[in-house]
Amino acid sequence: MLTKEQKMKLYTNLVRVRKLDEIMVKGVLSGKVCGHWSSQKGQEAVGVGATTFLRKDDYIFFCHRGHGITTVIPKGISPRAFIAEHFSKNSGACQGMGCLHVADMEYGAPGLSGSLGGDFVLAAGMGIAAKMRAKGQVVVCIQGDGTYGRGTFHEAALMAANWKLPIVWGVENNQYMVFTPTSDIFPKENMADLAFGYGMPGVVVDGQDVVAVFEAFQTAIERARAGEGPSLIECKTYRIEPHTYGMVDKRCAGLRSPEEIEPWVKKDPVNLFQERLLKEGVLTQADVDRIDREAIEEMEEAERFATESPAPDPQILKQVLYWK
């Protein structure tokens, strides 16, 4: 059971991530964000539920969507470092060299594979290290439904299952891979069924319900910390935004219909949790307003910091490739 404080923390993280998303959209429109922005709006409960209560020394791999926003922010990377990286400033998490690839090993976040699915096998390696170190660390690796098409998942899942590595595989199933509906590229109802061939638990969870996500991950994480090996959790969610901000919104060769999207807008994970906490009396309307205001202030301050930070010095290119 979650305590009142824990619920508040989950809710606060949902709001912070949502406000950060809004800042990123603004950054695209003002031309400050370099590259594109793949909004994770409406899917926040997955990453936030999975990572808010991880240990600082646990490792995470995240979806390309949101560029890690729902996992690295709960894990502790500052919005300043996140935004500055996207503005390609030297104060960014990767000194402006990675842009959408936010990373900081202090928080157990080594980065994002640009070629999707590259992360699975790296997660296996971090699992090996975590097991050798025997300090109870876990690896949480959340990837999109399309990314689970990569063969690297099979190799990593097999290794993790064979060696009982402390890994939790998360599927953030938003029902689309760019323009392709997931039902066209996966033959079964549940991707969680992938788990059974490897003899690990496979669970389906409502990805709009941050508590349900948290509980499913908590069970799997405890199992992993206890040395009992990996699990796979499929979070059912939905991509309400186009693949990247401003992109035409297609389904197969045609356009996606607004009627398809609408019911999912109603299942907004932030609103759902807010209503629940208000009803439970965990939150008052005054709390809701305060959390909103603080999140906006935090993100706006971070945006100002990023805007004012200097660009990286080209001299850095001489040092970045090798240690010596």
Binding site: G35, S88, G98, A311, L317, V320
Partner: peptide
Amino acid sequence: AANCPIPAGWYLEEHV
């Protein structure tokens, strides 16, 4: 191209 990966971001790609 210079002997290094291509950096992301606004400022460094042109140096590579």
